[in-house]
Amino acid sequence: MDKADESPVISVKNLTRRFGRVTALDGLTFEVRRGEIVGLLGPNGAGKSTTLRILSCYLAANGGEAQVGGADVFEASMDVRRRIGYLPENVPLYTDMRVHEYLQFRGALKGLRGKRLRSRIENVLQQCDLTAESRALIGRLSKGFRQRVGLADCLLHEPDCLILDEPTIGLDPNQIRHLRELIRSLAPQHTVLISTHILSEVEMICSRVLILDRGRIIASDTPEALLGLMQGDERITAEIQGPADEVAKGVSEMPGVRNLTITTDGGWNRLGFRSSRGIGVREQLFDLVADRGWRLRELGVERRHLEDVFAALTERDVVASGPGAPTMEDHHA
């Protein structure tokens, strides 16, 4: 990898933005390297859209620095705008235009002309599966197709960096899957910064995740590493047939069992509890059931999702970032 590949495509340092008394961004710092697909996660009002709007040169910041492709978003805004493809939230388009006509207009504004413009339009229409709709009025397209038109517009001038604000919002599962595959296919040539609420999507397509809360990065790592933060803790479920009070007493006395809940239905007790990983609680539970002569019909561990990490981080006032960030146990402590 040469030095140009090592330098970050997006670099943000101490970015601050206030709207009146509300601080939307509070010293935000992060980097995105070439070819990365980075997911920006956060609850409503965390500052995701503000960050993307500043990076796309639509808004100013109160303080800090932001660069895209080495160009400063405040000092060299035209350079930055040439290097990015920005898809705003809700995909605003001119609904009175036809798809082909719209892409022609946008391509011309982006400096494409003649054969190059025609070939790029053909390419993006194919890439976004819009060829059949190229003569359709944008106003008559479904939300999913409009989303694709917006993405086709972003890709027209082959920008280094794509900035996508909630690109899957309002799409049906098939459309989401299609868009996910499309974004994934862009990764080698383009650097993608994507803001979304759909956490499963981030797990599937992003090489790195930034979790924002109240204008600050509270976690930044790969989805796997973030899931690793939760590894010290697991949630176990079981269904046991036996006297409810004895089952509850027996399980709660097992070492490492916390937050036990028990519901009884038709003689079966449904148990749920948290336990520290690696102390063999499931084996102990199995032995307990065998010793007492009870019956067991389910024993499982709930798989951890990024959603759990997201909830754990954003519901508590945690400040952690980057490699070596504290684990969930540290947060519990």
Binding site: R53, S56, C57, Y58, M78, R81, R82, I84, Y86, P88, N90, P92, L93, Y94, T95, R106, L109, K110, G111, D153
Partner: peptide
């Protein structure tokens, strides 16, 4: 109102 100003002003147009 429609938000197209955002798309327009984030293109390299003065």
């Amino acid at each position: 109102r429609t938000g197209t100003i955002e798309t327009l002003m984030t293109t390299a147009v003065g």
